[in-house]
Design a protein around this nucleic acid. Structure first.
Length: 240
DNA sequence: GACATTTGCGCCTTTACCTCA
DNA sequence: GGTGAGGTAAAGGCGCAAATG
């Protein structure tokens, strides 16, 4: 990978040295809730995600006046001439980087706009946060993985609900069927019970069971299916 | 045009470090 | 202070697609 490739992309970077809040050496876990975290979020212009012509040229290597100087003057991360400087300490042990909360916020905001990065975007963000492009790339990879995992959990919950709904519906339909069968056992139904006309019974295409259908023009709408869908929709907020 | 190789990138799994209860 | 769990940065491997010869 070409970490040191020149980045000549024109970008508008809205985060000047005066736009940030003071950075404390805290981990994200130190916040009581999300709201508190967002309050300290730096003002960020994410136009860098969509470079436009005529914007200001930014020399990322020269721009080190940003608040994310985690590595400036930090003996643990001397100059980062190559990747091994980032990941290994002097005794050869792997060093664990903790991104500052400002860096995390910025990356989160970028991720909201785009979950993948072009090389130029990666370079720009790396320059903005004073990180190596490889670190930005890894963060986005891990973020995608975390997002996918979360989404899978949400999907799983949704499918569990669907399953429960369908089980209930299945039980109800079975009861209904039993009732109909018990009524049919006699030679002829009592006059006060009106069985549905044969023409109104249809085979449900999804469950392949006989259900009562509404009579309609050019359409056969299955009550059972309709009720089921309605149930599912009512218990579903539209996001999976 | 077909093919092999190279390159870049994303995803997945694993490792190792760090923090916290 | 020791320990295990959880979170996460990073490494390594694999597959795929585009570029190149």
């Amino acid at each position: 990978m070409e970490d040191d490739e020149a980045c000549n992309t024109s970008l508008r970077l809205g985060l000047g040295s005066g736009d940030h809040v003071s950075r404390k050496e805290e981990t994200r876990g130190d916040y009581d809730d999300e709201e508190e975290m967002r309050e300290e979020k730096p003002l960020v212009c994410l136009d860098l995600m969509f470079p436009t012509e005529g914007a200001v040229n930014v020399d990322h290597k020269a721009d080190r006046s940003l608040p994310f100087g985690k590595f400036d003057g930090d003996d643990d991360y001397p100059n980062m001439e190559n990747d091994s400087d980032i990941h290994r300490s002097k005794d050869g042990r792997r060093k664990k980087l903790r991104l500052s909360k400002d860096q995390s916020f910025f990356l989160e905001d970028c991720f909201k706009l785009h979950s993948t990065l072009s090389p130029a975007q990666k370079q720009a963000i790396a320059g903005q946060l004073n990180l190596k492009p490889r670190q930005v790339e890894v963060w986005f990879q891990n973020k995608r993985a975390r997002t996918k995992l979360k989404q899978t959990e949400v999907d799983c919950e949704f499918l569990k609900k669907c399953c429960a709904n369908l089980r209930d519906e299945n039980r109800r339909l079975k009861r209904e069927l039993e009732e109909l069968r018990s009524l049919k056992v006699g030679s002829s139904p009592p006059p006060y019970i009106q069985l549905p006309k044969a023409a109104t019974l249809r085979m449900c295409p999804s469950c392949e069971k006989i259900v009562k259908a509404r009579e309609g023009k050019n359409a056969v709408v299955f009550d059972a299916v309709g009720r089921r869908n309605k149930k599912l929709q009512s218990g579903f907020d539209g996001t999976i």
